[in-house]
Write a protein that binds this DNA or RNA. Structure first.
Lengths: 210, 210
DNA sequence: GACAAATATGAATACTGATTCATGTTTCAG
DNA sequence: CTGAAACATGAATCAGTATTCATATTTGTC
């Protein structure tokens, strides 16, 4: 409900809406706040995480927050964007020179599970974005879905997988990753990534039929 | 943050914590509030949904809310519980006299997708439970996972599906349903349930391999 | 038809927490 | 050096809203 904040800082307010520090000192403070926000919001959830919690975790005064971020919502949105970038990078790096789709599927699932086990806070933030920043949530999942879909279509054309509705398959496969990720991150399941991937990949490649 | 409310109503405070109306009139009011809460919280999310929004949607005064519910959290928890009961009933009815696991898988997916298309608000409420009522969220998913797991194990024993880690498979399959449900409910995808099920079931049974 | 229990009301309370602001302190170009 | 821009502070503001409460009204029972 907060109104859009008026510009408080002396930092440049870029076209993307971000407030950019002018000095190395400012840069460091901004990063400290962003990183504190990731931890605090990831742990307590958006609504239980107060600006006070975030700034005290970052070791700065409350007002300092508003030198670098227009609002609590804005820092959240930035975290969602960052999460998207990081996951996409991790996945594209893991799969970049794998020509076969089924192999890429396996490498991608492994990379995804490893990434989110390393960044549990970010995982929870994405989930909460459905309510706090629906646009960012939409962008996050649809960007993945689109890439997935076109990859599957290409694989069908190349005869690497059997034909089938690529969009539905894309969402189904994303769902598998997401759910297995959640089992690990939210529920603390300790099954080794390798074992999880083995089972899931066999399901994806061969299905359940005897 | 709210402290546990003191008993305000004259209604019996049951061992389960629910406040039960004594008359048909009270019963009707309670239902009206619960149903309004489902719509309002489903649409606006827990934090944006105020007691005022809920009571005005229900057509009662603000104070009336506290005759039937101890707190805003409590009405939310009750919605999550109700959602779990409804989905489980829909699924068990849809699959009760299907002996083959792969057929049951198909019927279950169909029933699930139809159910959540009919109850989009409840779907969003479950998602938000991760933050508002983690215990209820845990119970919701783990109850499903457990049933799923034992069903898969039985199917392996019966030779209906190939062997494989039942727990990981259970979470993967839940993830497929959830993701396809989300595509429909949150993103408004209009692909007919039948077509979605066909594609997904083929993936589940046969996998992607050509 | 009268009394007690149950239900309903909505204004008042109480508290939380995001955002602002007046006032320092630090940095750095010239 | 030195002054202006940048950065930092934290107490005060301000709004929203969950919850309570004193006060009706309705219902069912004798």
């Amino acid at each position: 409900m907060a109104k859009a904040a008026r510009k408080t800082s002396t930092g440049t307010d870029q076209s993307n809406g971000q407030i950019q520090p002018k000095t190395a000192r400012g840069e460091a403070t901004r990063k400290a706040i962003l990183s504190a926000a990731e931890r605090v919001i990831g742990e307590r959830g958006f609504n239980e995480a107060s600006i006070g919690h975030i700034t005290s975790e970052a070791g700065v005064a409350q007002g300092t927050f508003y030198i670098y971020f227009k609002s609590k919502d804005e820092v959240f949105s930035e975290l969602v964007l960052e999460m998207g970038r990081l996951v996409r990078r991790a996945l594209s790096e893991a799969t970049q020179n794998i020509e076969n789709r089924l192999d890429a599927e396996k490498a991608g699932l492994t990379a995804f599970l490893e990434f989110i086990r390393a960044h549990p806070d970010l995982y929870r933030i994405i989930q909460e974005a459905l309510f706090v920043d629906p646009e960012a949530y939409h962008a996050y999942y649809h960007t993945f879905a689109e890439g997935y879909r076109s990859g599957l279509e290409a694989a069908v054309k190349a005869g690497q997988i059997k034909p089938g509705d690529a969009d539905t398959r894309a969402w189904a496969l994303m769902g598998i990753s997401r759910s297995l990720g959640e089992r690990a991150v939210i529920w603390g399941d300790k099954t080794p990534v390798e074992d999880v991937v083995e089972t899931a990949h066999d399901l994806i490649v061969n299905g359940l039929k005897p």
